[in-house]
Every structure is written in structure tokens, then in C-alpha cells.
């Protein structure tokens, strides 16, 4: 494992911890897109189905369990514990627009026509667009809690860091992962606007507000 992948995983983990802390601290899930969280749960369940038949390492297994359980816990917090704080009227992005293209791409571009490979490919494409409901919500409200902003930032950094990881692995191991590489470029592109505003406002201690 190289430093890029490790830092990426840590930042991914941090993003989820930030979100859980925010919801628990404020006893509210206001500003958080339930749809994005639902899509991530779907991403993890479809990708980590191999936990039952494909052992990689203790680290890998631990992280998979963490991502699945923590995301389902967030869904629980939003749906049950702090349900009144979540306003579905501003969380209006149609998730069919992300799920359907991901399914089509998974059927066209994959590593083989087995259920496992198609689900894996689906999860990768789905992940690249899963943040859209959250960004859409941010755009509608125009501003966000600092912690929500840090959450989105940490999540964006995670997939961005996987790009040098793949370049590094291509150079050192000759390993090629074109599907995840391309999906990651798409995902990072979706974040570019957000990163820009984060840099120009939040880094200078200002409130996150869209121009």
C-alpha cells in the first residue's frame, strides 16, 4: 500500500466521522442530503459484497465493514433518530438520473460478465455521481454548516488521492485499473467548483456561501 491510497482511505474515513459527529452534536441532519447517503450505502453494499469470498487483508476487511456499517448508521440517524430535522423538500435531485446511467455503464464497461464484476463496475460509476444530490442541495440553500463543508471536502480529497495511487501502481506494479481511474476523474471534476469555493472562502475563515 502506498501513501496516496492510505491517506485517501483515512480522508474517506474522516469524512464519515465528521458527518456522524456533526449530526450527533447538533442533533440535526439539516443540510445533509439523505439521497447522497443512500447512494453511498448502495455503493458500499454492491462493491463490498466480495467480503464473503475474496479476502485481501485485515485492513481491507476492517475498512469495508467500517464503510458499510457507518453509512447505514448515518441513514438510521437521518431516518429515525433525527428525522424531523431533515427536510425532503430541498433534497430533490432525482437519483434515477445517477442510478440508471451507472447501471448502463456497468453493463457496457466491466471486467467480465459475472454478477460480481457488473456490481463492482456499477458501484464505481455510482460513486462518481453519488455526491450530486448533496451538491445540488448546497446550491439550492446557498450556504452550509462548516462541518458539512469539511465533510464534502474530505470526501472529494479521498477520490482525488486515488488518482496518484493508480499512477503510482501503474509505474511500480504495471497495474491498470481504467474503470476506476476514469470514474475518479469524473468524480473529481464534479468537485472542482466546490474545491474552488472551499479554497477561496473556507480556507480564509469565511462562511461557505455560494456566489
Amino acid at each position: 500500500m502506498n501513501i496516496f491510497r492510505f491517506l485517501a482511505d483515512l480522508s474517506h474515513m474522516a469524512s464519515i466521522v465528521i458527518l456522524i459527529l456533526q449530526i450527533r452534536k447538533t442533533k440535526s441532519a439539516a443540510g445533509v442530503s439523505y439521497k447522497t447517503q443512500f447512494l453511498y450505502a448502495l455503493v458500499f453494499v454492491t462493491r463490498y459484497i466480495d467480503i464473503f469470498f475474496h479476502y485481501v487483508s485485515l485492513y481491507n476487511t476492517f475498512m469495508k465493514i467500517f464503510f458499510v456499517t457507518s453509512t447505514i448508521y448515518i441513514l438510521y440517524l437521518m431516518r429515525v433518530q433525527y428525522k424531523p430535522s431533515h427536510d425532503p423538500n430541498i433534497d430533490t435531485f432525482r437519483i434515477e438520473y445517477i442510478i440508471a446511467p451507472s447501471a448502463v455503464l456497468a453493463l457496457i464497461i466491466n471486467h467480465g460478465y459475472t454478477l460480481y464484476e457488473i456490481l463492482w463496475s456499477f458501484s464505481v460509476w455510482l460513486e462518481s455521481g453519488a455526491i450530486l444530490p448533496q451538491l445540488f442541495m448546497l446550491q439550492r440553500t446557498g450556504e452550509a454548516e462548516t462541518l458539512t463543508v469539511h465533510y464534502i471536502f474530505a470526501l472529494g480529497i479521498y477520490r482525488l488521492l486515488y488518482i496518484p495511487n493508480w499512477i503510482y501502481r501503474y509505474v511500480t506494479e504495471g497495474r491498470v485499473e481504467p474503470i476506476a481511474f476514469l470514474a475518479s476523474l469524473i468524480q473529481t471534476a464534479l468537485y472542482s467548483d466546490f474545491f474552488y469555493i472551499y479554497y477561496t472562502k473556507v480556507m480564509q475563515g469565511k462562511k461557505f456561501e455560494l456566489p
Binding site: R5, V56, K64, F67, H111, E117, N165, G174, R175, V176
Partner: peptide, 10 residues
């Protein structure tokens, strides 16, 4: 590429 099937990442 058989390597890409390994899926050893998260």
C-alpha cells in the same frame, strides 16, 4: 488485464 480483476482497493 487479469490484474485489474484483483479489486484489492476500497
Amino acid at each position: 488485464n487479469t490484474d485489474s480483476k484483483a479489486h484489492d482497493e476500497l
